[in-house]
Nucleic acid binder design. Structure first.
Length: 622
DNA sequence: GTTAGAGTTGGGCCT
DNA sequence: CAGGCCCAACTCTAA
């Protein structure tokens, strides 16, 4: 062991000093003389990956807030942001500061695992000791997978079984009351402080309104390694009202925990996706960037509910609908993602069903994803996708959600369900990969495991299979808000419509459109498709896809013959055909006759009687 | 090997 | 009007 230890604490995703097992471990290094808190501003994130202004802005605010917290504990400390890929800039830091230890929080997702493996190898070569500590999830996803027989966790039940075997979730780590000084905040970089040149195409070029000076020097435009600003990256201000930072996150957490009844009776499925003020906690962005610790939230809820239960005021909710269930799902997805390669795409993803969606990812001969995705030959699908993305489908509920998503960087969980179902298995029959990409661009809280996981769930590609349950575009939002407040806010052109037509303005008579100051087809689009015709087609096609039963790792998918296979199947079953309303009516009537026909007696004995012990009952009239 | 019952959060109708 | 029931029929798991 060296006489003096000098550490770098490498911040990556989690931006806080509370509830950090890795930081605790770092500060416990024997003979620790200095710690430098570093962030490597990875060019891949700002050039190689489409990220909306809202997430950039939230991230920068969170970095600044973290830096301020470090300074509060030790005046000579701050977050040192070095512009460049970690594998380039970390070795420069090791050399400059005589570093003996590199400490960071473990990150189990595929991108981070590959990056961290490279860093660990470099560190080993230089004799720098690496300390990697799990802390981002309730349980270490890799450990969960191991206990689960090296298989991805595909049901919550399965995950819970594993969790029980592993043991209790630890209490939050203590927040450090003091921190050692940094070695120095300067780097010996005279030769190396050059402009970093991104080799590929800048995928964020179209949202840049000013000059990008962020990478002019490794030390940043001011030469002091300070947190980048939106202006330095050539970005205009974000539109979101959600402010980042560990301080802001803890404020929100305290507010939530301050209402014990809300915590104890939290029930996700019963919160309204239509409400103007978020009906949920809005903690997800703060969890995504680690502004608050996951154990702070878990134990905060546990303690508050325990106290509340003593008052005997009412019944509390249980898993999976309560807050614990929500956090468990996050862990379940993390464990699934870490075990399953290609989790963010269909191709090569063994847990994902192959469905012949339009606008799937495109790959070159070597099997590499082509980015940015070239325009598809399927013009109708491209047009539907563009309309969905830009909030101009002609379905006010979908459009309002998509506009809110772009503007705020957040929409309610059930609103995400609704727009995801519409884009994929509900109506548009477009690949979930496209939807996932848009969420990645616009959601502040986008997570590399939960997001693809939920897209597979909603598209019935994995985790969920009841594809005949489709969210209504008119009836469903009306259940929680008949007045359509969210639509009136985000689609202001519709604000004068009467409640009756707020989710289906195209059905309003011309006179109503005139008096509502909005002509459908002129001031607001006519629906891009027929909700019910497309729904029936989608269900029929999903049924075919399930019958064929291919998954992303199938030979046919890798060789590119799978799509034709399913098209042949559709031709066989007639799933691609559009049925007129009359045909549907006739079919339904025929079905009904079949059901209420001669088989009636058997029906009663097996179904009704067996279940309830009741015979047929005369229908009450009136 | 078979099968009933459950599965984070659907729609429609009835009470 | 919130809550229960049925619809038609998916997969996974525990018995």
């Amino acid at each position: 062991m060296p006489a003096e230890a000098r550490a770098i604490y490498w911040f990556r995703t989690d931006l806080r000093i509370t509830d950090s097992p890795a930081l605790t471990k770092c500060l416990a290094i024997p003979n620790l003389k200095s710690v430098n808190f570093a962030w490597c501003w990875d060019p891949n994130y700002i050039y190689g990956h489409r990220v909306g202004l809202n997430r950039f802005s939230f991230l920068l605010e969170s970095m600044q807030s973290l830096s301020d917290e470090l300074t509060k504990v030790n005046k000579s400390q701050k977050l040192q942001v070095v512009r460049g890929p970690p594998e380039k800039v970390l070795p420069i830091m090791w050399e400059s500061w005589g570093i003996t230890h590199l400490v960071f929080e473990k990150d189990a997702n595929e991108y981070a695992k590959v990056r961290d493996a490279r860093i660990k190898k470099l560190a080993e070569e230089k004799g720098v000791e690496v300390i990697e500590v799990h802390g981002r999830h309730l349980y270490d996803p890799e450990q969960v997978v191991k206990v689960n027989g090296n298989k991805p966790t595909m049901t919550l039940h399965q995950w819970q079984g594993v969790a029980q075997k592993i043991g209790k979730i630890p209490r939050p780590s203590e927040t450090p009351k003091k921190l050692p000084d940094p070695n120095s905040t300067d780097l010996k970089h005279s030769k190396k402080d050059e402009k970093y040149k991104w080799p590929g195409e800048d995928l964020n070029a179209e949202i840049r309104t000013g000059k990008d000076t962020c990478y002019d020097r490794m030390s940043g435009p001011k030469g002091d390694y300070s947190v980048p600003t939106m202006t330095e990256m050539g970005f205009s201000d974000a539109t979101t009202t959600i402010k980042g930072g560990t301080v802001e996150g803890h404020k929100r957490l305290d507010t939530f925990l301050g209402n014990p009844e809300d915590v104890a009776t939290f029930s996700k499925p019963h919160t309204a996706p239509t409400s103007l003020e978020p009906s949920t906690t809005l903690l997800s962005p703060y969890i995504k960037f680690g502004c608050i610790g996951i154990r702070e939230l878990w134990w905060g809820c546990k303690d508050v509910i325990e106290e509340w239960s003593k008052t005997g005021k009412g019944k509390k909710t249980s898993e999976p609908e309560n807050m614990f269930g929500q956090l468990e799902f996050r862990d379940m997805y993390a464990a699934a993602e870490t075990a399953q390669e290609n989790f963010q795409q269909i191709r090569g993803n063994a847990v994902c069903r192959y469905i012949d969606w339009a606008l799937q990812n495109q790959y070159n001969d070597k099997g590499d994803l082509i980015l940015p995705r070239p325009r598809d030959d399927d013009e109708e699908a491209e047009e539907r996708f563009a309309a969905w993305r830009e909030g101009r489908t002609g379905f006010p509920w979908i459009d309002a959600c998509m506009r809110q998503l772009k503007h705020e960087g957040w929409i309610h969980h059930l609103a995400r369900h609704s727009v995801a179902c519409f884009l994929t298995r509900g109506q548009c029959y477009i690949s979930w990969e496209r939807g996932m990409e848009v969420f990645d661009e616009w959601l502040i809280d986008w997570d590399p495991a939960s997001n693809p996981g939920n897209w597979m769930w909603l598209s019935c590609s994995a985790f969920f299979a009841q594809y005949y349950r489709v969210y209504g575009l008119v009836s469903w939002p009306a259940k929680t808000d008949k007045h359509g407040e969210l639509v009136r806010k985000y689609c202001p052109e519709l604000k004068d419509f009467p409640d009756k037509y707020i989710y289906s303005p195209h059905l309003a008579p011309e006179s109503v459109q005139k008096s509502s100051n909005c002509i459908i087809g002129k001031d607001y689009p006519f629906p891009i498709l027929d909700e019910h015709v497309e729904k029936d087609r989608c269900i029929a096609r999903l049924k075919d896809a399930y019958a064929v039963g291919l998954h992303g790792d199938a030979k046919e998918v890798l060789e590119g013959t799978a799509k034709q296979m399913l098209e042949d199947k559709h031709a066989e079953t007639g799933a691609g055909e559009v049925k007129s309303d009359k045909e549907k009516k006739d079919l339904k009537a025929a079905e009904k006759r079949k059901r209420s026909g001669d088989g009636n007696i058997e029906d009663w004995t097996t179904k009704k009687q067996g279940k309830k012990g009741l015979g047929p009952v005369e229908k009450r009239d009136g």
